[in-house]
Design a protein around this nucleic acid. Structure first.
Length: 638
RNA sequence: GCCGAUGUAGCUCAGCUGGUAGAGCAGCUGAUUCGUAAUCAGCAGGUCAGCGGUUCAAAUCCGCUCAUCGGCUCCA
């Protein structure tokens, strides 16, 4: 038998008889690696460990701890789940079951609805399967054979999947574990025994192939990790996320409410929530003015004709609210651009005026479907830190780069990491191919010039133009869409905007729509969850609470209160007839950064000794020194 | 909008197979005057989401509506 040469990741080489399995080869290379290896890459392509090597190759084991390895582990677990579901519910039809970022799911069509008790049953069955050490074995059959096989099993969704494969695909692969066969590209684990730490999480509805016109299937979500510890960590993280839920903290910290009587998706800000909002808005105004933006403001409703002209009536009507005044139809604005266009049009513009940057904390209303509403993160009325930049095509690049810098600065101030995505033309769009190409390359060019790392999101742009999305990552690594830059050649066209160029001729300006924090409400929701309600001092609605020990300390407490208030410190009185421990606890639960206890000592020294919410005591200091401390943190965004 | 679950006091939750509602915390009143995460006692608080039906009798069973939650789709 001929021999083959294998090159390992460390560039060492080994010689093996032709037909050696990858598993055996790895086993003789580094036996200790094998136990955590789920599959391998042969010349770059991932394959099963059971594959026999027939020619020279570069072989790289895929470890279960890597992202790719975890994906394979989870995908295999989803196959085991499908087996368990069909064992438990013989009528259930399988559809697809991929691994996802935090686990896996599998969609089923089943007459009965899965209950939480059913999940336990399925999980138990999965444990039986994984305890048996069944191998995942791959088999390749012809397309027609596969169709016949799944037809016979009554798996109509699998038949549909095979039929929809590209015409040049002649062979499909099947994986079998413990007598259970599924259509799959692979690769998979060598054995079910590697599946040790898994759990099923929830049942949810999901449309077949993600299309809302299709049948609703039942999706079971689960997750799987290489070790029990990793799974436990993940489950703890979910618990932590629940504790941080902004809807819960919004109530506990008395920031805002969503009230049935007011209506779904409508937020009512309480004093502390409004204070947080005010701080953010003031920051916005200051930063925009620094960057050469002009503040403007338009009305909430504008005549229907304007929305028809802009294209919103044709493309966005189902998301808009309408009203009638004196027999005239009006649309409640879902976006702020129209007023800004009218400002531009209010006089003849010269190229010397450009770029014009109109900024508005613009409150918009959008008729979101009831099922998508989610606290502050998805509401029907919200306020964008919106701006529209009108510039010459030549200025586009520097304007986009300036916005990207602004976003980077904002993310630094608020303490978020972020990712960048470029979204291209969607199906439901307006405008010419040439304009879309120009706009898309302008955005991409600016990203490249700014040396930003970005991903491309095909077909995810707005109906009027492509966009750059910035997705920030919070303390729990969850991603949230906030900033976006959208390039628009259409509106200037539709509204016949122009400027007089140096040549004395009329030219068409280009328009950029952009937001930095996105929607103030959403950003607040993200901030609440990011900080778990314990905002940095500069953002805390209440920065200090004054706690009197007994009622004889109230007059001095009042004096300190007044001093702090005069200095602009956001301060609260806790003068009630309770023991100090009780008041500390109260302030602690409200996550107030500084607690100022006023007792005999503080009265005698005319001082305060701030206790931080982390339990640290800063020692005795004068009231002016404490004021400096707070103001220092305000200035430094800490 | 779709699938599923849920809805009892301000909050967190009990309330067995139908017999007419209960606790802790919060609130109020009083006592206590207290030094870094809960002082004690008393009081008050609910058309059991809403509407309709079954029944001698409904928080409990059935239907519809509304809202919320988890997803899908959509999105700042």
């Amino acid at each position: 038998m001929s021999e083959i040469n294998i090159t390992w990741p460390d560039n060492s080489r080994g010689t093996f008889p032709g037909g050696t399995t990858i598993k055996d080869a790895i086993g003789s290379w580094k036996p200790d690696v094998l136990s955590s290896t789920v599959a391998a890459k042969v010349d770059g392509s991932p394959v099963d460990l059971g594959v026999r090597l027939e020619k020279d190759a570069v072989v790289e084991p895929i470890d279960v701890a890597t992202k790719e390895g975890l994906g394979i582990l989870r995908h295999s677990t989803s196959h085991v789940m499908a087996q368990a579901v069909q064992d438990t519910f013989p009528g259930a039809k399988v559809t697809i079951g991929p691994s996802i970022e935090e686990g896996f799911y599998y969609d089923f069509e089943c007459e009965t609805n899965f209950t939480p008790e059913d999940l336990q049953k399925i999980e138990k069955r999965m444990q039986q399967i994984t305890a048996t050490d069944s191998t995942f074995s791959r088999r390749e059959i012809s397309r027609t054979e596969a169709v016949a096989l799944f037809k016979e099993k009554g798996e109509s969704y699998k038949v549909e999947l095979i039929n929809d494969l590209p015409p040049d695909v002649e062979i499909v692969s099947l994986y079998t574990q413990g007598g259970y066969v599924d259509l799959c590209r692979g690769p998979h684990l060598p054995s079910t025994q590697m599946i040790k730490a898994f759990t099923l999480l929830k049942v949810a509805g999901a449309y077949w192939r993600g299309d809302e016109h299709n049948k609703m299937l039942q999706r079971i979500y689960g997750t799987c990790f290489a070790t029990q510890e990793a799974l436990d960590d993940y489950l703890r993280m979910i618990e932590e996320a629940k504790k941080r839920d902004h809807r819960r903290l919004g109530r506990e910290l008395d920031l805002f409410q969503l009230n049935d009587e007011a209506g779904p998706g409508l937020i009512i800000f309480h004093p502390k929530g409004m204070m947080l909002r005010y701080i953010i808005e003031e920051w916005e105004r200051k930063e925009h003015l620094k960057r050469g933006y002009d503040m403007v403001m338009g009305p909430q409703i504008l005549k229907d004709d304007l929305w028809k002209r802009s294209g919103h009536f044709d493309h966005y009507r189902e998301n808009m609210y309408f009203t009638e005044v004196d027999g005239q139809g009006y649309g409640i604005k879902p976006m702020n651009c129209l007023s800004h266009m009218l400002i531009y049009k209010s006089k003849i513009r010269s190229y010397r005026d450009l770029p014009l940057r109109y900024f508005e904390l613009g409150t918009v209303h959008r008729h979101e479907k009831t099922g998508v509403l989610h606290g502050l993160l998805r509401a029907r009325q919200f306020t964008q830190d919106d701006a529209h930049i009108l510039c010459t095509p030549d200025q586009l690049n520097s304007e986009i780069r300036a916005i990207a810098d602004f976003v980077a600065y904002a993310m630094k101030i608020f303490g978020f990491e972020y990712e960048v995505e470029l979204s291209t033309r969607p199906g439901n769009s307006i405008g010419s191919d040439a304009d879309w190409d120009l706009a898309t390359s302008a955005l991409e060019g600016a990203l490249k010039d700014s040396r930003m790392v970005y991903e491309i999101n095909e077909g995810d742009g707005a109906f009027y133009g492509p966009k750059i999305d910035f997705k920030l990552k919070d303390a729990l690594k969850r991603k949230w869409q906030c900033a976006t830059i959208q390039c628009d050649f259409t509106l200037p066209e539709r509204f016949d905007l122009s400027y007089i160029g140096s040549d004395g001729e009329k030219h068409r300006p280009v328009m950029l729509h952009r937001v930095i924090l996105g929607a103030i409400e959403r950003f607040m929701g993200v901030l609440i969850e990011h900080h778990a309600g314990a905002f940095p001092v500069w953002l805390s609605p209440v920065q200090a609470s004054i706690l009197t020990v007994t009622e004889k300390h109230i007059p001095h407490g009042e004096k300190v209160y007044k001093q702090l208030l005069d200095a602009g410190v956001r301060v609260e009185k806790s003068f009630s007839n309770e023991k100090l421990g009780y008041k500390i606890r109260e302030a602690q639960m409200q996550k107030v950064p500084y607690m100022l206890v006023i007792g005999d000592r503080e009265m005698a020294e005319d001082a305060v000794s701030p206790r931080q919410r982390d339990g640290n005591n800063l020692g005795s200091m004068s009231v002016p020194d404490f004021i400096d401390l707070v103001q220092e943190r305000n200035r430094n965004y800490q």
